[in-house]
Design a protein around this nucleic acid. Structure first.
Lengths: 134, 134
DNA sequence: CCTAACAAGACTTTTTTTATCCTTTTAGGG
DNA sequence: CCCTAAAAGGATAAAAAAAGTCTTGTTAGG
């Protein structure tokens, strides 16, 4: 359980690769995909999600490609993971009131809340700079 | 991401219900299923898994049913969750050497390791006694 | 030996994940 | 202005996992 999907794995590989490139080096999706060994069409979808929230910048047409939306030290692993996997929710009952039909006195609730917080904290404490080994 | 499956959720509900019963009260699967609102056939599978590893004891035939394999304070949430969901593995690369094909220098590795440890610790710190509100 | 209950395995359905393909949009260069 | 390069977006398909059901077997009590 608690397993990152392949999509998440690919997402990390792809953006870490970008973070390891020289600043302002525009990378082709096809090059990134080949370098990190991910199907290009799938990585395209992932980078579209990144692009929408500004994690990466994209340029179309000749000479186009991708580069990081911010400096690597300002992008956390949490952002990357949540961008493609959605929020970290160990159990539906941590989402909010009413979601946990098992009543007000759901004793497991605080446990999942704690798990959620710890995982988020762990991922938030790591930046792309750390991962790219700048 | 990181979401408990319905099976895990059902497993917790079922065994917490057992833990809340008077000691030595043998419970019918059908009663448990009705009480915690889980399909009886599905809960049967879950309790079979519990039974195999001794988390619950089962008795067949007339007057049969289930009861807890140990006192509630000796059963952790971690055991319950791992019994039905398998080990907590945030990423395949934490499993062991060789699993992470991305080389010796996989920089994300330690992050997942930490996540794994924290989640396990959080779940291990909670027992069925805590959850059943003894 | 009849009935109650769990055990076990096969099977089906549904949902999610993992992809691929095709068309559209944007941009640069001749 | 047209051609080509590249990403964007939508639809669809294939594969895997999760969720649930069914049937048969086993064990025990009366």
């Amino acid at each position: 359980m608690m397993e990152l999907t392949r999509k998440g794995e690919y997402a990390i590989r792809g953006i870490v690769y970008l973070a390891a490139q020289p600043v302002d080096r525009v990378c082709l999706l096809s090059d990134i995909a080949a370098a990190v060994d991910v199907p290009a069409t799938f990585l395209a979808k992932i980078f579209q999600q990144f692009s929408k929230i500004g994690l990466v910048k994209s340029y179309r047409g000749t000479g186009g490609g991708f580069l990081l939306g911010r400096v690597p030290e300002k992008i956390t692993l949490l952002e990357v993971v949540e961008a493609v996997e959605g929020p970290i929710i160990p159990n539906r009952c941590v989402v909010g009131a009413g979601e946990c039909a098992r009543d007000v006195s759901c004793t497991v609730h605080p446990v999942w809340k704690k798990v959620q917080e710890q995982v988020r904290a762990a991922l938030e404490g790591v930046t792309l700079k750390d991962l790219a080994g700048g």
